[in-house]
Amino acid sequence: MTVAHAVTANRLRDGIPVYRTEDGGWSPQFSAVGQLATAAEAEAIAAAAGAVNGKDAVVGAYAITVEVDGAAVRPTSLRERIRAEGPTVQPLAAMRKAS
């Protein structure tokens, strides 16, 4: 397993978590996250990200680390895993629907 760097933010218009892709765009899919070699690279991209306006504008970009295990990539921290995969608890609405 190796550790790589990446950049995430929330999309301005709806607030959902987005990930910086290899081609410089933003994707709501964590699987599309672009891997960077160094934290410095990730931080530089994050610092510049807030200045862009328009449909794809993002808020509060920051650098994260990800664990790479072959083809499998996942965020290192629990916080980032919860952002990428959703709450660890079933919301009440879903619990009620299931029962």
Binding site: N10, G15, I16, P17, V59, G60, R83, P87
Partner: peptide, 20 residues
């Protein structure tokens, strides 16, 4: 965002992990 933040907060709008 820096200018907007206090304005949205005064209307109860936060930015959280998954959405606003």
């Amino acid at each position: 965002e820096e200018e907007f933040r206090p304005l949205r907060l005064m209307n109860g709008l936060y930015l959280q992990l998954h959405a606003y």
